[in-house]
Amino acid sequence: MASNASASEMVLVKAWQGYLGKLDSSPLLTKSISAAVLSIVSSLVGKSIAKEKIKPKSIIDEFCVGLILRGPLVHWFHTFLDKVVFRRANQKNKIVVIAKVLLDQLLFAPIFISLYFYLSGIMSEKKISDISKSIKKDLWGVMKGNWGVWVPANVIGYGLIPLNLRVLWGNIINIFWTAYLITKVNKKSTVKAGQDNGQVS
Rank of each mutant, 00 (worst) to 15 (best):
N4F: 11
A7R: 10
E9H: 08
G18I: 06
G18A: 11
L20I: 08
L20M: 13
G21Q: 09
G21N: 07
L23K: 11
S25C: 12
L28G: 10
L29N: 05
K31S: 07
K31Y: 01
I33R: 08
S34A: 06
A36V: 13
A36G: 07
L38Q: 03
L38R: 02
S39V: 00
V41K: 02
V41P: 02
S43T: 02
S43Q: 15
L44Y: 00
S48W: 12
P56L: 11
K57V: 04
S58A: 04
I59V: 01
I60W: 03
D61R: 10
C64K: 14
L67T: 04
V74K: 03
V84G: 08
V85A: 11
A89E: 14
I95G: 06
I95L: 09
I98M: 10
I98Y: 11
K100G: 03
L106E: 07
I111G: 11
L115Y: 06
L115N: 04
S120W: 10
S124W: 06
K126L: 15
K126V: 06
I128W: 05
D130L: 09
S132Y: 10
I135C: 06
K136F: 11
K136E: 11
W150Q: 02
V151I: 15
P152D: 03
P152H: 04
V167D: 00
L168C: 04
N171S: 12
F176R: 10
W177D: 11
A179Y: 03
L181Q: 01
I182A: 09
I182K: 09
N186E: 15
K187S: 07
T190A: 14
V191I: 14
D196R: 14
